[in-house]
């Protein structure tokens, strides 16, 4: 994995603002030439980041079921040219956003997010507390995945695999116990002082 390109080194905040601006500009483009230029631009940016077609595909892959359906509807309602333009624009938008994800580590994006929250302090936004919640949430994902696995095994043992309630009720109660124990632990460490 090459990790050194101009795009990798660019600050996370700059990339996010750039993405916002480019996305808005792209949404205003509705001509075949304009969208064609946008595609060339996006592919060029992937090349600058030294990312290959495989990386590009990994970002637009979630659209693979959606695009055929939408193209069919667009073709029927708006005609083939509009269908091609609009769908290409959509894929380009997703690819562009994916480029920021590919060239920026999660931790740097979270840091940028926290910095972005600081100016909102006057409105009662607590950036430090937000960062804590994000870190706790990351840590809670494997804990709750394990909890869900345990509940599912118990459910299977009793032959109630299709019962959503038999799965969700113990999971939610377990999550609440987990959360309230965690809250107690945080409070005991003086988080509310």
């Amino acid at each position: 994995m090459p990790t050194t390109s101009v795009l990798h080194r660019l600050g996370a905040g700059a990339k996010l603002w750039g993405l916002c601006a480019c996305s808005l500009a792209l949404l205003a483009v509705s001509t075949p030439t304009g969208v064609g230029a946008a595609v060339v631009g996006v592919v060029a940016l992937y090349a600058v980041a030294r990312l290959g077609p495989r990386a590009l595909w990994s970002q637009v892959r979630p659209l693979r079921w959606f695009v055929p359906v939408v193209v069919a509807v667009q073709w029927a309602t708006l005609g083939p040219v509009s269908a091609a333009v609009l769908t290409t624009r959509l894929v380009a938008l997703v690819a562009l956003a994916g480029l920021v994800t590919l060239t920026t580590p999660t931790s740097l994006l979270l840091d940028a997010l926290e910095r972005g929250l600081h100016p909102w302090r006057r409105l009662g936004v607590d950036a430090e507390r937000a960062a804590l919640v994000l870190a706790l949430a990351v840590r809670s994902v494997p804990v709750l995945a394990a909890l869900a696995g345990g509940v599912r095994d118990a459910q299977r043992a009793r032959g109630r695999e299709r019962d959503v309630r038999a799965f969700a009720v113990p999971l939610v109660v377990g999550a609440l116990r987990q959360a309230d124990a965690l809250g107690e632990a945080l409070r005991a460490r003086g988080l509310d002082d």
């Binding site: 607590d126 706790l136 949430a137 809670s140 709750l144 959360a179 309230d180 107690e184 409070r187 509310d192």
Partner: peptide
């Protein structure tokens, strides 16, 4: 957001 709230918010995000 006090400690108990923070813990519940984070845990439900994971849920």
């Amino acid at each position: 957001l006090d400690a108990a709230d923070a813990a519940r918010v984070a845990t439900f995000a994971a849920l």
